[in-house]
Design a protein around this nucleic acid. Structure first.
Lengths: 276, 276
DNA sequence: ATGCAATTTTCACTGGGTGAAAATACACTC
DNA sequence: GAGTGTATTTTCACCCAGTGAAAATTGCAT
C-alpha cells in the first residue's frame, strides 16, 4: 500500500496487516457475540477489518475443519467441533464440573442466583449460573463477561489479582454502572483491601431491583485464587450477613475439591517437602 | 522434500504439508481430549504431525489471542476466551439452554439419566446430561462422542440423517460394543427403518449394568432432526414402554420451543407461502 | 426487467511461513 | 557435580501459501 490518505487513522482495529495469519484468522471468531450468533461473510470481514475475499478463505478453512458451520442461508455459526474441544477448558467446564454439586447445595439452601466466575484479562467470565425463574432478575449469561471493579465476583478476582493487574484496572476510568454508587480509584483500593482482609466481597445494587451480591474466593492447589463464587439476592436489609458463612463455606469446599490444602501449617509443609 | 523413503506411508496422519496454514494450526487443538486436557509442546507437535518449531509458533499465536493458556509448568490448556466464544455454538449451549427446562422435567419424573445429543460427522456429541449420583452408571461426558450405530440417540440421528451419511456409516465396519448384541449392516438398516416409523429408538445393554435407553428425535423449524433426547434406565423387564410417551412428549415440547410447527397441514403451509 | 449488494472466482505479486540445525534450559542419573 | 538425554526456544536462508483488487456470479429486492 504505497499511499494511504493521511487523514483517517485506519478504521480497522483488529487484525492489521503484518500480523501473523493465524491471529488474523482467529480475529474473525471475535465477531461472534451473545447477540450475534450467526454472521454473514461481510459482517465477519467488516468486524475483523479484512477484505471479504481474505475472510472467505479463512471461513472455508474453519468450516472444513468444523470450527464453524454454515446455515442453509449461507450465514456462519460456531460449530460443535469447536464447542466440543473448548469444553475441555480447565477454567471453563473443568472447574464447573467440580463446583456444580456445591453450587447446587448453595442454591438448594438459598433459592437465589448462584454464580461462578473466573478472570480473563480485565473482565470476569461467568462459568456457571444456577437460578430459579422466580429469583431476582439478573442479566448475566453463562459465557458472558462482567466488569471487575463493580461486581462482587469481579472485586474478589481483582483484589487477589497481581499488583500490575490492579494498577492497570485502577488506572483506566471505572465505568459507572446504573444502580451502584460510583467509586473512585482511591475508594476502590480501600474496598479491595477490605475484600482481601474479610475474604468476602459485598455489592449493593438498586437497579433493575434492589439486590445484594456476596462473593467469596475459590482457591487452587497453590492457594492462588482461581475463581469467585457468589450469591445474588434481594436486598432486604441486614439479611446478607446470614449468607456470608454459607458462601464462604461453599467456596472453601470447592477449593478443597480442587486440591487446595486449607490447613497447611509450616510444619506440615516442611514434612511434605522432605518426603514428596 | 526431494527423496522420501518409499517404505513408510508417512506416519503423520494430520496436517500434511501443503494444507492451508490455518487448518494445520487448528489440527493442533485436536490433540486435546477428555483424558489429556493439558499438553506439552512435543506432545502437541507429535499429535498434529508437525515439527516442534512450527508448532511452537502456532501455539504462541493461540496463546497470545487467548485460545490457549499456559500453565506454570509450560504445558498448554484450552483458554477461557475460546471456551467463551465456543459457548455461543447454536448446536452446543444454544440448544441446551432451550432444552434444559424440559430435560429437568423429564429428570424430575424418572430420576434417571437424561441425555441430549447432536450429530457431528459420524458421531453423536453429548450436549447435556442430567443424572443423580444414585442413577445407573454411564460413562458419557458432556462434550464427549458416542457412536451412531450402537446407541439410542445415535440411531435416532442416523435414521434421520441423509442417505449418503447412512451409506457411509453402514459401509464401514460397525464397532462391536461390549454388552450389546452385534449388528450387521443389513440388520441395522431394518432397525433404522423401524426407528423412523416408530419415532423412537430403544437400545438394551448388559454392561456395565443392565440398562435400556429410549431416545426420540428433536425437530427444528424446518422439521429437520436437530438433536436426540434420551433416557437411560435400569433394565427391569417391560418397564420401558411406560417412559416412551414421556420421552416423546419432552422431545416434542423442545421441538416446539425451537420453532417447529407440529400440525402444519398442506393447506396451512400453502397459506403461509402465499402470505409470508 | 433493473439495480444493488453479497458472495465467489481469478490471478499476478510478495511477505509471512517453514523447519533443519544449533543453542539453551531442564531433569534426571551415576 | 559432572554427564546424558530430552524438551524448549532461537536462528535464518528458502520459498510456498497467503494476499486482495478486480471481475464474474448469485441473490434479492423494486
Amino acid at each position: 500500500m504505497p499511499d494511504r490518505p493521511a487523514t483517517e487513522p485506519v478504521q480497522e482495529i483488529h487484525a492489521q496487516h503484518g500480523q501473523p495469519v493465524l491471529m488474523r484468522a482467529l480475529s474473525l471468531l471475535a465477531g461472534f457475540s451473545d447477540k450475534r450468533r450467526s454472521l454473514s461473510l461481510v459482517e465477519l470481514s467488516r468486524a475483523a477489518g479484512m477484505p471479504p475475499a481474505t475472510a472467505l478463505r479463512f471461513l472455508r478453512h474453519f468450516t472444513e475443519w468444523g470450527a464453524l458451520e454454515r446455515l442453509e442461508d449461507g450465514r456462519y455459526v460456531i460449530g460443535v467441533r469447536l464447542w466440543e474441544i473448548a469444553s475441555l477448558a480447565p477454567r471453563g467446564h473443568g472447574i464447573r464440573d467440580i463446583a456444580l454439586p456445591y453450587l447446587e447445595d448453595l442454591y438448594e439452601i438459598t433459592h437465589q442466583h448462584v454464580l461462578l466466575a473466573v478472570r480473563d484479562g480485565r473482565d470476569a467470565v461467568l462459568i456457571d449460573r444456577l437460578s430459579s425463574k422466580d429469583a431476582t432478575e439478573v442479566a448475566y449469561r453463562v459465557g458472558g463477561r462482567l466488569p471487575l471493579p463493580t461486581t462482587a465476583v469481579g472485586r474478589i478476582l481483582l483484589a487477589h489479582g497481581s499488583p500490575s493487574l490492579q494498577d492497570e484496572v485502577l488506572a483506566s476510568p471505572i465505568d459507572a454502572v446504573p444502580g451502584t454508587a460510583p467509586v473512585s480509584a482511591r475508594e476502590l483500593r480501600m474496598v479491595l483491601a477490605d475484600v482481601r482482609r474479610a475474604g468476602v466481597s459485598t455489592v449493593h445494587r438498586s437497579l433493575p431491583s434492589k439486590t445484594v451480591s456476596v462473593a467469596a474466593p475459590v482457591l487452587g492447589p497453590g492457594a492462588e485464587v482461581v475463581a469467585a463464587l457468589s450469591i445474588v439476592m434481594p436486598d432486604k436489609g441486614i439479611l446478607e450477613h446470614e449468607v456470608i458463612p454459607a458462601v464462604r463455606t461453599a467456596a472453601r469446599a470447592i477449593s478443597r475439591d480442587l486440591g487446595y490444602q486449607p490447613a497447611t501449617s509450616a510444619a506440615v509443609r516442611h514434612l511434605r517437602e522432605a518426603h514428596p
